[in-house]
Design a protein around this nucleic acid. Structure first.
Length: 510
RNA sequence: GGGGCCGUAGUCUAGUCUGGUAGGACUCAAGGUUCGGGACCUUGUAACCGGGGUUCAAAUCCUCGCGGCCUCACCA
């Protein structure tokens, strides 16, 4: 945590006086999630983004949001590097021929932004602003890989990406430019590739669940809903408060399709030339942010887990102009507390010229876990009043115990967030045996609904389409990757009535 | 890509139907009084998204564009 506190020291650009909207958040998360989400993100709330930048789908990331996003990045960067991935930075543009080489599988070329001019001259061949990395990375990997000794080759990129001509845009959920993270791995065998996919799941567990308190299910997507360029797609899905699925990450078993298209091959130890197997893993940094905002937040604003909050604690002084001698003592004690807490935590002494009540609301809106209140009483008695964002509670502790108390408070907040999120997730995962039951649940509660289903192979697509039409939008998310639920004898597909081969999860989706 | 709503100061908004002086609140700035859960008073700064059209006259009507919200569809 030592480096974290340095990042925040000084903290230029942190919100100060009156920088949260004047009215605060007026929408109810429970009753009107869309409006609540918009308010939290913008001027009335935590000012995470400025959507007034005048290009659709491109937003300005303000300091509080950018600091959180950087921390999410850091968590994943540490994980993948510990897993043997090396960082790369590939160019911003991709030549048309690279992009189109695999278009029948990848199929995203209609969504990319094209550069056609340089100055006032037309380019000979258009350049695409990079959407995802496959088509730029694999041709280079093909040059780097000569023998089995070069494998596995594991790399990753953390960067902004630009693509998808989204008609509907929302901060952190749907944008034309967004925070991107992708690993691209090459292995000798399919077993090696599958082992990587399990490790990718492990990383999701350690970051999304352990650190961010975001529950998810790791699905194997149905064949009809996989990434077209992959043999199989696996994805971590969480549930937003409106009951819609938020896909937080995807991992693709790319098989040998891209190896084939881009000429990746290696000489194996037996001297024969072979085609490698590939995987890629993409935790959606933006989608994580949306999940943090939506799942943990309340009608007061954000609630951030300690792992990603730019500040662990804020110190609010309480002084009275009629007693200047007290004010001085309070300020000194605040500085002392700041110095002490800074040994272990990211802490800020908020000495700005507003009232304590304003600061309380301000920092709660921004989701800071711990607030230390220091007034004449505390200064006199050598104590600190410590208030927790969630569960909401306040108590006064001895200065000597300060850091231990903060540590305990952060732990308590993190486990509270996990308990809340887990409860919501469980309460909104239901079972249905018939299409009518499914429709009822989707209509009233949304969330995940488990149903018996005929097939997650291509032959199940027709039923999935009907299911989607009947439920006004629910999709088949797939089957659990770990311990998939098995249909009981006699379970029939909710759509066609044939014997169910799988229990699948369904949900409406972002 | 479809449908609906919308764009007035930094923010939220009145005014638009029925064309004629753009009004309020908050923020911000200054001064003063305050300060243990969004303090108050006084004064001040600050706006009709852009282009074209109709008209004596456009925030208001027409049109094109840009942007936003909701919703459906789409979706590595």
């Amino acid at each position: 945590m030592a480096e974290e506190k340095d990042i925040v020291a000084g903290a230029p650009g942190l919100p100060s006086r009156g920088s949260a909207g004047t009215k605060g958040i007026t929408a109810s998360k429970e009753k009107d999630f869309s409006e609540w989400y918009t308010q939290v993100c913008t001027e009335q709330g935590a000012k995470l983004v400025d959507i007034r930048y005048n290009v659709q789908g491109f937003v300005v990331h303000r300091p509080w949001a950018f600091r959180i996003l950087r921390k999410i990045y850091e968590l994943y960067e540490k994980e993948v590097e510990a897993d043997g991935h090396e960082p790369y930075l590939f160019p911003t543009v991709i030549p048309e021929e690279n992009l189109l080489k695999e278009k029948e599988h990848a199929g995203f070329s209609p969504d990319v932004f094209w550069v056609t001019m340089a100055g006032d001259e037309k380019l000979e061949a258009p350049l695409a602003l990079r959407p995802t990395g496959e088509t730029q990375i694999y041709p280079i990997y093909a040059l780097w890989i000569r023998s089995y000794n070069d494998l596995p080759l594991k790399g990753y990129q953390s960067r902004i990406t630009v693509f998808r001509n989204e008609k509907t845009t929302r901060p952190f959920l749907r944008g034309r430019e967004f925070m991107f993270f992708e690993t691209h791995d090459v292995f000798r065998t399919h077993e090696d590739a599958m082992a990587q996919i399990s490790r990718d799941l492990g990383m999701m567990k350690r970051v999304a669940w352990d650190r961010l308190a975001l529950p998810f299910i790791f699905f194997q997507r149905p064949q009809f809903d996989k990434f077209k360029g992959a043999d199989n797609t696996y994805a971590a899905d969480t549930l937003m408060p409106d009951g819609k699925r938020n896909q937080m990450s995807s991992t693709h078993d790319l098989g040998q399709r891209f190896a084939n298209a881009y000429g990746l091959k290696y000489d194996d130890e037996d001297g024969t030339e072979k085609q490698p197997h590939q995987t890629c893993f993409g935790p959606g940094i933006y989608r994580h942010m949306a999940a943090l905002i939506g799942i943990h937040g309340d009608d007061t604003g954000l609630i951030l887990p300690s792992a990603v909050c730019p500040l662990h604690a804020v110190i609010v002084p309480i002084t009275f102009s009629k007693k200047p001698e007290d004010a001085k003592a309070v300020e000194e004690f605040c500085k002392k507390a700041e110095k002490e807490a800074a040994k272990e935590f990211a802490v800020k002494f908020d000495s700005s010229a507003t009232t304590p009540g304003f600061k309380f609301n301000q920092w709660e809106m921004l989701g800071v876990p711990v607030r230390l209140e220091i007034g004449p009483r505390e200064a006199k008695e050598g104590k600190v009043t410590i208030a927790l964002r969630a569960p909401k509670e306040k108590r006064t502790v001895a200065f000597a115990d300060l850091n231990k108390e903060i540590r305990d408070s952060l732990e308590k907040l993190d486990s509270e967030l996990k308990a809340r999120a887990e409860k919501y997730f469980a309460n909104n995962t239901k079972d249905a045996k018939t299409l009518k039951e499914l429709k009822d649940i989707i209509e009233k509660h949304r969330g995940f609904v488990r149903v018996p289903f005929c097939s997650t192979g291509m032959d199940g697509e027709k039923c999935a389409d009907i299911l989607k039409t009947e439920t006004l939008g629910a999709v088949v998310c797939g089957t659990g990757f770990e311990n998939p639920e098995k249909p009981k004898k006699g379970d029939k597909c909710v759509v066609c009535g044939k014997d169910a081969r799988h229990i699948v999860y369904t949900a409406k989706t972002y």
